[in-house]
Amino acid sequence: MRRRKLSPEERDLWSRVAATTQAIHPVRPAPPDDLPAPQSTPKQKPPPPKPDLRDFRIGQSAPGFVLRQDLAPPLSERLAAGPVRMDRKAHQKMTRGRLEPEGRIDLHGMTLAQAHPELIRFILNAQSAGKRLVLVITGKGKRGLDEGPIPQRQGALRHQVPHWLHLPPLAAAVLQVTPAHQKHGGSGAYYVYMRRNR
């Protein structure tokens, strides 16, 4: 299809209409010839901070032993958070050191393999003898050299004994386990309150 050319009258009409309009976006004046046109410079990001790395050579020994943080809550907090299964008044007296243990066993210095059967024998004999409160002394333990990827806990017996007391065959004999009062050994010993022998 061919485009039709405007007649002189139509061109005159168009020029009069165009003269009455305003531009939506006004045209910016061109800069003078003697000034250079402004150039937009891209913003440069600051370089990221370099990590503080020490020089290390092959064959050089690694830095010394660093004490790791134990993310698990302390054993005393975990035991205290457990439910009270015994009489509350007796429990308060026991935790304040006002109840005297009727028997005690000292596992301090034993290995885990030696201590486990001794604990089983002692607890079952105490229950069969009708004792209600006994003291299990574990000691606080020593922190060994921790070189592996899994952190080691201080005092293997201190952490293992409450676990053993909640497993068969001792779980049927034990009603409550709490850390001992300071006068009975503090965090290096446990009160074990026994179930009644039926």
Rank of each mutant, 00 (worst) to 15 (best):
E10S: 09
D34E: 06
I123L: 06
V192H: 02
L6E: 05
G103L: 04
P26F: 04
D70Q: 13
G185M: 01
L135K: 00
A171W: 03
P38L: 02
P8L: 00
F65T: 11
A19F: 12
T138Q: 04
P38K: 02
H163T: 14
R28G: 05
L107Y: 07
E100R: 15
L107A: 09
P151W: 13
L75V: 08
P149W: 15
V161R: 04
K131Q: 10
K43M: 14
G186R: 00
E10Q: 12
E102C: 06
V66P: 00
P32Q: 08
R68Y: 11
R28E: 14
K142H: 10
T21P: 03
H108W: 06
W14K: 05
H91G: 00
K131H: 06
A90Q: 10
R196C: 10
K131R: 12
Q160Y: 02
K5D: 12
Q176P: 07
Y193H: 12
M194G: 11
L175K: 14
K43P: 15
D55G: 12
G64Q: 08
K5A: 15
V27I: 15
P48W: 05
L35V: 07
P63D: 06
P151S: 11
Q92I: 09
E10A: 14
L79W: 09
G144C: 04
R132W: 04
V174P: 02
P48Q: 07
L175Y: 09
M110K: 14
T178V: 13
L107P: 03
G103T: 01
T21E: 15
P46A: 11
Q127W: 01
R68N: 08
R158S: 03
N197T: 13
L112P: 08
A189S: 09
E100K: 14
A23S: 13
P74K: 08
N197L: 12
A171P: 00
L13H: 09
A30F: 15
D12V: 01
T138V: 04
T21L: 15
I58L: 10
W14G: 06
N197D: 14
Q152Y: 14
Q182Y: 00
D55T: 13
P149T: 10
S187G: 11
G155L: 03
P31E: 07
A80F: 07
A19N: 09
Q182M: 09
P168W: 08
Q69M: 07
P49S: 02
R195I: 05
R98I: 03
R132C: 01
D12Y: 08
M94S: 03
D12R: 07
N125C: 04
A173K: 07
R85Q: 10
P29E: 13
P26A: 05
T41R: 15
M86C: 02
T41G: 08
R195Y: 04
K5F: 14
L135C: 01
K140V: 10
P48T: 01
A171D: 10
L79M: 12
K43Y: 15
P162C: 11
Q154L: 12
P149N: 15
P63K: 00
A19W: 12
R195C: 05
Y193G: 02
A171S: 13
G64V: 03
P48H: 03
S15V: 06
L112F: 01
A90M: 12
K142P: 07
P117Q: 05
K45Q: 12
R195K: 14
L67H: 13
G59I: 06
M86W: 00
